[in-house]
Simulated assay, not measured.
Amino acid sequence: LALFALAVGGKALGAYLGARLAGRQPHWPATAFGAGLNARGGTDIIIATVGLTLGLISGPLYSVVVVQAMLASLLSPTALRWALRRVTPSSEELARLEAERQSARSLVGSLARVLVPIRPPSPTVGDAAPTIAATRAMEIGLLSSLSRRRSFQTTLFSVAAPGARAAAERYLGEVSATFSPLKPAAKVVEHRHPPEAVIAESQRNYDLMLLGAHVEPDHPDAVFDPVVDDLIRLATCPTLVVRGKPAGQTMSWPPERILVRANGTRAARHAAEVAFALAGEASEVILLHVVVPRHDSYYLDVADRYVERHLRIGHEIVGALAEIGRGAGVSVDHEVRVGRSEDAVILEVAQTRHVDVLVLGTHLRPASERLYLGARVERLLRDAACAVMVVNAP
């Protein structure tokens, strides 16, 4: 018992005094240091074993050392919890914990691997080539902006028809050169059904799949085009779809004005994170929440209270997102408007404020085998005169 008390007390006191004198820690944090550093059983047992082997200590003394090491290690977690319950975190520690909590919930903050499917060249591209080039430029700009916030690995992935691997590899090499600042990995596989190959690749621990889409769908029932729609619908990782401006319109990068539909959902938060990452030094992110009054007879007697309550909630929503953006050094403006149609108000703000990019957060709706992102999102995609990015996180 005397040896145990001496070993535990000596280590705890030494750590406590070191934390108090050298680290200038308060009483309870210094006590926690002493409690935590007492878990040293493995080292004591190894040294005692070497001493016993060399004949430097006796068997009974070896047993005492092993027992005290085990007891000290068992006691340490309980003592550490007891001390930590009495520690008052500093403002810096609280800020660090909050930053970690926000990062764990963040789509951008958790990126480690990004998959970018690249379609092989096709003789049917024709007039769409300028649009594809503009969309790819947006993809490169987006990835470059995201990489300023967090380092991640980008993989360019192409699916070649059986026997066409060499041509696909040459083309992917040319495309990789345009992504050169990101130092992407390049991968080509042969498969008869490209969407199946891309989905199989996306299941290999990717955090995001970045997809480029044409301005006008190639198919009347498609939201973007049949291939992109299938990839969004079947992907097991979050997707981010980039759709450029209509033909003939150009856009500077980084975009000067970015509009985010802030409706209080987790998807809207992800969209705001992407917008904050996109913003350059001269950019402005506009957070817009729209309140749509209820006009049915059930709500007639409480219509004013309904609007007042939802205006208050809307200001809380955009205020919380604006705080995140300003914390990242982004210029943020926010609005809460009342209108009969949310999508009509968003389109009006996008036009009057000369928005370059509209960022929408959404989640999939079950609708047989057709991609369905909701009537409002699909109308915004159809009618917006600016570039659009759609973030979908399962």
Rank of each mutant, 00 (worst) to 15 (best):
A160E: 04
A137K: 12
K187G: 00
T155R: 05
L172D: 05
A137F: 00
A161N: 12
A200L: 06
V198S: 06
I132F: 14
A167P: 02
A186R: 13
G163E: 08
V175D: 03
E169Y: 01
S144M: 09
A133K: 10
E190G: 02
V175N: 04
S147I: 00
V188A: 04
G141W: 13
R149E: 13
P194D: 04
E139K: 05
G141N: 14
F152S: 02
A200S: 11
R148C: 09
H193F: 13
E139T: 01
H193A: 12
A167Q: 11
E190D: 05
S151Q: 14
I140R: 15
S176V: 01
H193E: 15
M138P: 00
G173Y: 14
A161K: 14
S158E: 07
H193W: 13
M138D: 11
I132R: 15
A200N: 10
E201L: 02
L172E: 06
E190R: 11
K187M: 09
A137Y: 00
R192E: 11
R149A: 13
R165D: 10
L146F: 08
R192D: 08
S145C: 12
I140F: 04
I132D: 13
A134E: 15
E174N: 08
V189I: 04
S151V: 05
T155K: 02
G141K: 13
R136T: 08
S151M: 09
A168W: 07
S144Y: 00
F152E: 06
I199Y: 06
V198M: 11
S176G: 13
M138W: 07
T178I: 03
P184K: 14
S151K: 13
R170S: 12
L156A: 10
V189Q: 02
T135M: 10
P184D: 07
K187A: 07
V188D: 04
A185L: 15
V198H: 08
S158D: 04
Q153P: 01
G163W: 10
L143N: 06
L156T: 05
K183I: 00
V175R: 10
L143R: 07
A186L: 02
R170K: 14
F157W: 12
R150S: 02
S145P: 05
R150L: 07
H193M: 14
I140K: 13
K187L: 12
L182M: 12
S202H: 05
A160G: 03
T154H: 09
F179D: 04
A134H: 13
A161E: 15
P195Y: 09
L142N: 02
R192L: 08
V159E: 11
T154Q: 06
F157E: 10
V188R: 04
A185N: 14
E174D: 09
L156Y: 05
S176P: 00
R136S: 06
L172A: 11
L143T: 07
